[in-house]
Amino acid sequence: MVGLNNIVRWAIVLGSILLPGFCLAQLKAHSFEEIEGLQKTARRHLVVFVYTNWCRYCDAMKTTVFKNEAVARTLNEDYYFVQLNAEEKKDILLNNHRFKYKPNGRNTGVHELATALATIDGKLTYPALVILNAKLEIVFQYSGWLNHKELGTVLRTVSE
């Protein structure tokens, strides 16, 4: 009947406007290839999270800290967020430089981009958080566990 159809139609329209506000903030992760294009539309700092599959604290940060509402919102709105597997096997092209995977054993090695971004005092440990400005210069590096409050503070401070 026409009346019922109208109600259904309004319900769909209202629902699609209201529902997104009830969903949890989904952290948007980009790839390095997208960054150049994105910077052209809006210049933002880049946050890179360097991790490996066997690093337990990296897992912990992925499942708790990066799923936190406030952190996800800040990263989505003020930054471009990229996750880098330090043992990534594929080449990555960034800033006209090709970064490659360097093996040192069967199924073990490290990607040059992880070494370039996350080496602190000569050492590369995981997890590592690196913030670069729009010109791809490193402005912040930290290695180790950060809880959502600490990460929130870092993100707010750097973007000022």
Binding site: R56, D59, A60, T64, V65, N147
Partner: peptide, 12 residues
């Protein structure tokens, strides 16, 4: 089974 807590605690 892995359990991660927001405090950073972990139980495996």
């Amino acid at each position: 089974r892995k359990m991660h807590f927001s405090s950073g605690a972990f139980i495996g």
